[in-house]
């Protein structure tokens, strides 16, 4: 069983984000970078599956040379090897997926796990695009994964419930919270990870059709979310406060019947 996991290097969202003078980009220098949180669930699921079924886990990341750190994190969690696809241009989800799909062809995985969404782009599209480009079935937002006579059977969360879907392999799945609890790498495993191989290829060498990579979308302007909340702390006896709150929500804000 060959399992590939897509992981992305993203700034820790606990960071304070400032917008640069051009109004179109975020100041990233000095921020702490981590593996995107949903990708940790994808990693954990892959490792558990290998522990059950045998085989190998390859961590795949496209980005700058610093992404090696993110891949090392995956190796320390228990993956066997890494693949870094170096990219120099800023790509949208469309381009990233084209590059990743091309890189994955050479691995020919039976199963691909990815996060349901990267917390920098909040893009929610790279894995679905990869599956489409590779021509394999997929399911997003899964909260359970099992193999049953060679087929994948997953719970796919939807609003108000879930579907149980089965499909043949190879297939791709995006994971979300609830599927598992990602492990913390132990110190010995962090040490071991340093000796595990990370292959590197340049996106340019993958010869992906320019049409697939070129960006058709541009950032016009960045802004910080509205921060004009009233911050009105009520006073008086609790019973007076709840009366006042109810009246305000109903009559002034009109958010209650």
């Amino acid at each position: 069983m060959k399992i590939a996991v897509l992981v992305k290097r993203v700034p820790d969202t606990a960071s304070v984000f400032t917008i640069q003078a051009d109004g179109k980009s975020v100041e990233l220098s000095g921020l702490k970078f981590v593996m995107s949180p949903y990708d940790e669930h994808a990693m954990e699921e892959a490792i558990q599956l290998r522990e059950q079924e045998g085989g190998e886990v390859v961590v795949v990341c496209a980005g700058s040379p610093e992404c090696r750190e993110t891949i090392r994190m995956g190796l320390a969690m228990g993956a066997d090897s890494g693949l870094l696809v170096t990219i120099t241009d800023d790509l949208t989800g469309k381009g990233l997926a084209a590059v990743l799909a091309a890189a994955l062809q050479s691995i020919a995985p039976d199963i691909i796990f990815a996060g349901k969404q990267a917390v920098d782009s909040d893009g929610a599209q790279v894995p679905e695009r990869v599956a489409e480009l590779m021509g394999i079935p997929h399911a997003s937002c899964i909260t359970q994964f099992v193999l049953e006579s060679g087929k994948a059977v997953v719970n796919r969360e939807v609003e108000g419930g879930h579907y149980v879907i089965s499909m043949e392999l190879p297939a791709l799945f995006t994971t979300q919270k609830g599927i598992n609890t990602p492990r913390y790498p132990t110190l010995p495993n962090i040490m071991k990870a340093k000796r595990k191989p990370i292959e590197e290829i340049a996106a340019a060498d993958l010869l992906v059709d320019e049409m697939l990579i070129s960006s058709g979308m541009a950032i016009e302007k960045l802004s910080l979310p509205r921060q004009d909340r009233l911050c009105k702390v009520l006073d008086g006896e609790i019973s007076e406060q709840v009366t006042c709150l109810y009246r305000t929500l109903r009559e002034e804000e009109k958010v209650m019947q």
Partner: peptide, 16 residues
């Protein structure tokens, strides 16, 4: 659309 878990709002244009 929101970026960085909603901490930044981005206005994007579609050129294509």
């Amino acid at each position: 659309k929101p970026l960085y878990a909603g901490k930044v709002i981005s206005e994007v244009s579609f050129g294509v």
